[in-house]
Design a protein around this nucleic acid. Structure first.
Lengths: 224, 224
DNA sequence: TACTAATTGTGAAGCATTTCACATAGTTAT
DNA sequence: ATAACTATGTGAAATGCTTCACAATTAGTA
């Protein structure tokens, strides 16, 4: 992942850095609510179990946001971070598969808080099509492609069984959507210009299981 | 994370390696269903978008499971991998917070498939306490500690609002549970012998958002 | 048996990320 | 104004992870 650092220079930003930037955003939201004016890399690190040097290094990839001797201005840094993440705007999101996971996501507060607006729902189940979830009518998946285009959808969350996920993704790709969040436990094939991220909740339980079996003296919370 | 490699030797296994081991488990399950007898590191890599060298290196941390010139025996390797991950057994899991996410997780097929049996549910809402979810009666969160102990619970999934997550985790720790999967967007404080993994679904959307804003020519699916 | 082809297992090299450590620059107190 | 203090920003060092490349080993074939 490259980001612009000027007219010509570009620098590769690691996935880990971006995930930590998400953590900073979260911590800064809390700090803002707690009415902190400034925060040091040390405090930010403490809150997210990282090191101060890491916080400073991560932020330095994107600019100089702090004041020596004082720290970072909370509100300002939060704004910068939200700009970096691209969540200083609204994203039009569709969700395919209104099953257990899908239904939960429709009501997931963190999404809307960060500008991810689920504005369309799709399913193939006749009993669900036409039903209302949080004010959104479930569409027939047959119309996926046209409705994604007409609805100007920019991201799609896929919460369908693994067996059908690839077919649905093929349709999503045809609709020119470039970002997919996939909950199906399968490796999706997409063209190189389409971004896919996978969310596999069993994997973290597996990690816990591994940790319990192999190591009874861990370091506490997992790293990013 | 260390794992035993013999009577005395120990080697640090990276988090990434464990996550990939989860992917191998998944691929091997498919391969087994498709009646493959053996599989090469090349094929395994292709299926999970990794490199053959990485597959071999990952597996080599735990032993020599392949046959030169032939590859790995699918069923046997799956058994080994499931042993490595500690999912060659049943884990007794409790879930706290029967809200949107919590309810979805109770029915999540991947958990049960891999031996994670949710056997207890907790909530603080009087309307939910006593109700039946997939055959499990929701208990009052007031009894969390005693019921976790009496139920011999080994892992707890926390799916409650961020504001109360820490209090609940404090209780879980007192019940001597050593593994927690946390869905609340907050950094939990636990003693060093308690394993915590965080699941933050908004973070992956944020990554997509970052990718869309900063780079319109990605590599496809995210790395592990 | 001998030869060919395939594929593992693994040190070593290469690359990426994290941590260190300190010059720099701002704040606070007197 | 000055001194003492604080905390950033960043090259460089240290550490960690991935890829390379090849010797070793097995299967298949004649």
């Amino acid at each position: 992942m490259d980001i612009s650092l000027g007219p010509t220079a570009r620098k590769r930003i690691s996935e880990s850095t971006i995930h930590r930037i998400s953590l900073y955003y979260r911590a800064l939201s809390f700090l803002e609510k707690e009415n902190f004016e400034t925060v040091s890399s040390k405090e930010l690190a403490r809150r997210e179990k990282l090191t101060p040097a890491q916080v400073r290094k991560d932020l330095s990839f994107f600019g100089s946001f702090g004041t020596r001797g004082l720290g970072y201005p909370v509100a300002e840094l939060k704004a910068k971070v939200s700009k970096i993440l691209g969540i200083d705007r609204v994203w039009r999101v569709a969700l395919v598969g209104v099953g257990n996971i899908g239904s939960a996501l429709v009501s997931y507060k963190e999404f809307i808080k960060q500008g991810f607006h689920i504005v369309k729902l799709f399913d193939n189940d006749q009993r669900k099509i036409g039903s209302n979830h949080k004010g959104i009518i479930v569409s027939d998946i047959k119309n996926l492609r046209t409705e994604l285009q007409e609805g100007h959808i920019e991201m799609v969350v896929v919460a369908v069984p693994a067996t059908v996920a690839q077919y649905i993704v093929d349709d999503i790709v045809k609709a020119d959507v470039k970002a997919i969040l996939n909950f199906a436990p399968i490796n999706l094939k997409v063209p190189p210009d389409v971004h896919v991220r996978n969310e596999n909740m069993a994997m973290e339980l597996e990690y816990l299981s591994f940790a319990m079996v192999n190591d009874h003296a861990p370091k506490g919370a997992g790293k990013v």
